[in-house]
């Protein structure tokens, strides 16, 4: 799954004056944003900042009220979720949505399969090497015959990310992957994301600052539906506007 790094990073996702309103509430207000290929780009902000809405606008779960979204140059503003998926835009879910009664290996298999109508015979072998080696990389090889519902919470959240990654997308949107994780589980999740970041462009929406600052190449901070500030983790840390928005103390990590 190694991708070749292009010498000139292209713009994976471009938002131009994107807005989304719910009645009189401007959840996302005139946001313009560039996500560069190959980077881990996080979107953070206090509650109600509009990050989740923005996330859903990019993934296709919500339609824009105004503005345009481009995916590697293609205008995807009007495209359905499924079309965006096919173009290479995948996502995960904050509320884990896995195949609970199927095993880890089976979950992975469903994500990696060709997805076309086919009547060729298939049975996942007990020792399927491809799946095993992948799971080994992610530390879940031992559980590959375990039903997902029997995994720990942290393992399930990691499965969620792995499923998204297994889609072989060009861009992977991660929806609060660290939500509700203990410190040990957070470490494992960070390790997982670290392992996959070279193969896919990652857009991360998250509350956990520690993880965000350690993982991201670039951070966009939102507030009240607008972009407050943008920059590298170091720049954001010392940005006074951002500190003000979060009332300071939380950023002393």
């Amino acid at each position: 799954m190694e991708k070749q790094n292009t010498t000139r990073t292209s713009q994976a996702i471009v938002l131009k004056h994107v807005s989304r309103s719910f009645g009189s509430l401007h959840a996302v207000d005139n946001v313009s944003l560039v996500i560069e290929e190959g980077l881990v780009h996080s979107v953070i902000g206090p509650n109600g900042a509009g990050k989740t809405t923005l996330f859903n606008l990019i993934s296709g779960n919500l339609k824009c009220s105004a503005g345009q979204i481009f995916f590697f140059g293609t205008d995807i503003t009007k495209m359905s979720l499924h079309l965006r998926l096919r173009l290479g835009l995948g996502r995960t879910f904050q509320i884990t949505s896995l195949f609970k009664k199927l095993t880890v290996a089976e979950n992975l298999m469903l994500a990696m399969a060709p997805k076309k109508l086919g009547f060729k015979s298939f049975k996942l072998a007990k020792n399927d090497l491809t799946a095993l080696s992948l799971l080994d990389k992610f530390g879940l090889a031992e559980q590959w015959m375990t039903e997902v519902e029997n995994l720990s919470h942290g393992e399930q959240r990691r499965m969620e990310v792995i499923l998204g990654w297994a889609l072989n997308s060009k861009v992977l949107l991660l929806d609060e992957p660290f939500a509700g994780l203990s410190s040990g589980e957070t470490f494992q999740m960070m390790d997982l994301i670290h392992k996959i970041k070279n193969t896919v462009t990652i857009v991360l929406v998250e509350h956990d600052f520690d993880a965000v600052f350690k993982l991201s190449d670039k951070i966009t901070v939102m507030q009240s539906g607008r972009i407050l500030s943008e920059g590298t983790p170091e720049e954001i840390k010392i940005d006074s506007k951002v500190q003000e928005a979060y009332l300071g103390s939380i950023l002393d990590a």
Binding site: H82, S97, K100
Partner: peptide, 10 residues
């Protein structure tokens, strides 16, 4: 097992 997620997987 999960119609929704299957759709989300493509």
């Amino acid at each position: 097992e999960n119609d929704f997620r299957m759709g989300m997987l493509g």
